[in-house]
Nucleic acid binder design. Structure first.
Lengths: 174, 174
DNA sequence: AGACTATACATCGGCATCGAGGTATAACGG
DNA sequence: CCGTTATACCTCGATGCCGATGTATAGTCT
């Protein structure tokens, strides 16, 4: 997830680590800080794999910055990861949002639509939060406000996404 | 996250591993299978920590089941983890939903409200997905449908949750 | 002058998770 | 009667992430 986000942001413009940290933290829709101990090793991994170059520059305000630029291999790798997204990238909320954020770089509308369709079929699998044996329980079935909230939030999200998916797929398939 | 879910489900009734797997998979609002290699080691960890007991029973349809029951220590531990949720439990979508699913077990309304308020203040931190330098970008600022979708979905979720939080906190504080 | 804060990068231990593989039993269809 | 499927559990290696800790610099406050 982090690696995808790094590749995605650098696809748009060179950035240094600290700025990447800020952008990745905002990616989920609210601030969810990512640990230094997560970011810098990830950068190193991508660098060792030849996906990005590092250029040291004097810092504007403090310590020297390492400006990171995607190599051609890095650009290809981003596109490959978007095209061939893993199942977890489709089903996990955080990962999916990351894919979505950079899907515009996959210039072929057919390829974009293919990814969206995978998400759609994932969302269309009928499912419920809680079961009593085999029978799924609706919000009505339990009196506590917390599980009712869970269902209410999940439904709002799901409706918004399904609506958007339908519209967008129709647009891409023209 | 997984451990919390296991403790939460077992708080309600004894279950065997396979059934836990099914329930945890549905917890996020849609089916997100959890790997065997994640579940069974987690059960072992909790067992070694004295939080649950295992009772082998002949399987109804197949191999023998290990029915799992929370010990008193396990019940305490669930309540403690709910009360003293980590920052990541509040900010990470998956973890937060797990907390929410079992918050009803924390019988004191004041304690429940305290957890909800932490989530509320997290959601109220102003934040935007993407930045151009210092200036946050709204959905209008970029033409691609994918980031527009991202914002649309995130807003729907956020509104639903904030509405529910306000109502529920008002109810709990009576 | 000294303290503090924000910027900027890095390492390390620990741990939760995935993914692939394996074992075994019971029921069902051909 | 044999293969397949669903049930049920387990192990192991690899990996990605967290959290703590450390270093250094530039600007700001007092």
């Amino acid at each position: 997830m982090l690696e995808l986000a790094i590749l995605g942001f650098l696809y748009e413009q060179p950035l240094h680590g600290y700025e990447l940290k800020r952008r990745v933290a905002h990616l989920t829709g609210h601030v969810r800080p990512i640990a230094d101990g997560t970011l810098y090793p990830a950068i190193k991994r991508l660098e060792r794999a030849g996906l990005l170059d590092r250029r040291t520059e004097p810092g504007t305000r403090a310590a020297p910055r390492h400006t990171l630029t995607l190599t051609d291999g890095g650009r290809d790798e981003l596109l490959r990861r978007l095209r061939e997204a893993g199942d977890l990238d489709i089903s996990d909320e955080n990962r999916w949002f990351t894919v979505l954020a950079f899907l515009r770089h996959l210039t072929d509308p057919a390829e974009q639509a293919a990814v969206l369709r995978r998400r759609l079929s994932f969302l269309e699998e009928p499912s419920s939060f809680f079961y009593e044996g085999e029978r799924p329980l609706g919000a009505e079935a339990f009196g506590d406000p917390f599980r009712r909230g869970l269902l209410r939030i999940a439904r709002a999200t799901s409706e918004a996404e399904l609506g958007w998916l339908a519209e967008t797929l129709a647009g891409l398939e023209d």
